[in-house]
Structures are given as structure tokens and as C-alpha cells.
Amino acid sequence: MNYTLNQLRIFLAVVKSQSVTKASEELHLSQPAVSIQLKNFEAQFDIPLTEVIGRKIYITDFGREIATAAESIIEQVHAINYKTLAYKGGMTGKLKISVVSTGKYVMPFFLSDFLSKHAGIELLLDVTNKNRVLESLENNEIDFALVSILPTTINIDRLDLLPNRLFLVGKAGQKVKIKNDVKEQFQSLPLIFREKGSGTRLAMERFFSEQNITVVKKMELTSNEAVKQAILAGLGYSIMPLIGIRNELSNHELEIINVQGLPIKTTWSLVWLAEKKHSPASLSFLEFVSSRKSAIVEQNFSWCEPYYN
């Protein structure tokens, strides 16, 4: 047999996702490239590793045994790399962070300098909705989570990073008539919601509940980007985090509509389980963010301040 580490990684990705398409997206490879490597890997075995029924790929029992062995091999390769870097005096290990979807506009700025200084640290970053983030946190599957709404059922410690503000946003130039009655204002607008489980959706619903506002939901979309595109197409309005619409505001494609009671004010916070035993890598990251957060915010998020006044 003459399989490669790359083929092992590809096979593991296919096993975990049970989809060549999803594996190619996860690995940032083309679908044909994944299919070819998977075929070449399977050709080295006399017993099938996968089987395709209809358009769905299934992993055979033998394939799952090979996947377990492959995962062990990959882990050993990582261990060799970590030991080499550690011997040279470098920080090594994995850093596992789960981020609510809008947090993708925040987290990279707190990671960039840290990872450039510690090449031996492998980052596992999951960008998903609030429910999945909290599930990963509660199950101790991650070192840190980035949230804008703190969990109330999990015992956590936290480090506040920067303010989060959510405004009513519409397509530029639509000339919305501002009404004195906030209830009447929202009842006259077609509103676009994020999906259930989203922190932005929760913030919107809390605002409407506190204001005793009944609204008509125009549509529900599953990402911040999808909401932006719908607003740009003139399909409606939404309450959105300022952090995610910088370019559209600068390009005069979207505009903030000043409404009584807005913006909604929350805080971006890095959170972790209160009894978490940090690895050297996660502890080093926490110390880095604690000491550098003011400079990072000043350098990368000062553009937000005029909108807070």
C-alpha cells in the first residue's frame, strides 16, 4: 500500500461529513480533487470502504475501522510536529473556539497576532449559531466561545471584549418615514429575521417583547450575509449588528434607520466554563487577549464609535 497523509485526511473528512461535497468545502478543495483522492485511496483495499446508494455515500463497517486507524495516524503526526516545535521552545497544542455567526467579524482580529507568534498552535474555529455554540461550551468540547448574549444556564467565566450594537437597517435611499409611535413604525415595515437559535434573532425578539410590539415577519434567513443581500435587494428591513455592515454603510448601500429604543446594546464576550482546566495553549491565548484587547479594539473597531453616540 502507498497511501498518503493527504488521502487519510480526505477519507476522514468524507467519513465525518458522509458527503464528498461537504468534505471538499471543509478542506477547501475542489469536489473532483476530493473524489479522485478518495478513489485512489479506496483502490488500495480489497474490501470496500464506502458504497454509494442513490446519490448518498455510506461508510462500510470496514471503512469505519480504517477511519479509526487513520485518525490515530493523523494524531500521531500532529504529536510529532508538536514535539518538534516544543523541543525548539515553541508553544504547541490545539486551540478550540466556537463563535456565533456574526462573531466572524470580531474573532479574527483577536487571533491574528497571537497565531503569528505561535506557529505551533493549531486553531479549530467553528462558526455557527448560538444554540450550537452553547452546546459545544456546555459539553466542554471547546476552550472558548464568543457570544454577544451571555448564557444563563451554564456556569461561566468571561472576558468582555467590545460593545455590540444592533440597529434597524434598510436599503439606502428608500426614505422610510419615521413615526413617533415605535409600535406603528415596526408594524408598517416588512421585517427579515434570522433563524431560530441565532443570537441576533433572540435580541430582536426580546426587543419586540419589551416594547410590546407585534410584528409581521416577512421572511426568515439562516445567515447574516443572507439577510444583508435580502435588504440590498429591497425585500425588507432587519435589526442587525453594526459590526457586520461596515462596508455596506461606507458604500452607501445600507443605512441605519433611527428608531426609538434602538440600538439594542449587548457586549461581545469571550466565555469559558468556570471550572475549565486550560491547556498551555488556551491559557496563553487568554493572557494574550487580556493584555492586548484595548489595543486590538482601538486599532480595528474605532470606526464603530461614531454610531454609538
Rank of each mutant, 00 (worst) to 15 (best):
M1A: 14
V14R: 05
S17D: 11
Q18L: 13
V20E: 10
E25T: 12
P32K: 09
P32W: 02
N40I: 03
A43F: 04
Q44I: 11
F45M: 03
T50F: 12
E51G: 00
E51Y: 12
R55H: 13
G63L: 07
E71F: 10
V77C: 09
A79V: 02
N81Y: 03
M91G: 03
K94Q: 13
L95F: 11
K96R: 14
V99R: 02
K104S: 15
V106Y: 05
S112C: 10
I121H: 01
L124R: 11
T128H: 05
K130F: 03
E138R: 15
N139R: 05
N140W: 00
E141N: 10
F144P: 04
A145P: 12
S148F: 07
R158T: 12
R165Q: 10
F167Q: 06
K171G: 02
Q174Y: 07
I178N: 04
D181T: 03
Q187T: 07
P190Q: 03
G197I: 09
G199D: 13
A203Q: 11
E205M: 13
E205T: 07
F208E: 04
E210W: 01
E210V: 11
N212I: 00
I213G: 10
V216S: 14
V216Q: 15
K217L: 06
E220Q: 15
L221E: 11
T222F: 14
K228F: 04
Q229D: 12
L232S: 07
L232G: 10
A233P: 01
G234W: 05
G236R: 08
Y237G: 07
S238N: 03
L242T: 02
L249W: 02
S250I: 14
L254N: 03
I257P: 03
P263A: 03
A274F: 00
K276I: 04
K277H: 13
S279N: 07
P280H: 01
L283F: 14
L283S: 12
E287N: 15
E287C: 01
V289E: 08
S290A: 15
S290T: 15
R292K: 15
S294N: 15
V297M: 06
Q299C: 10
Q299L: 12
Q299I: 01
C304Y: 00
E305Q: 14
E305F: 13
P306G: 11
N309V: 14
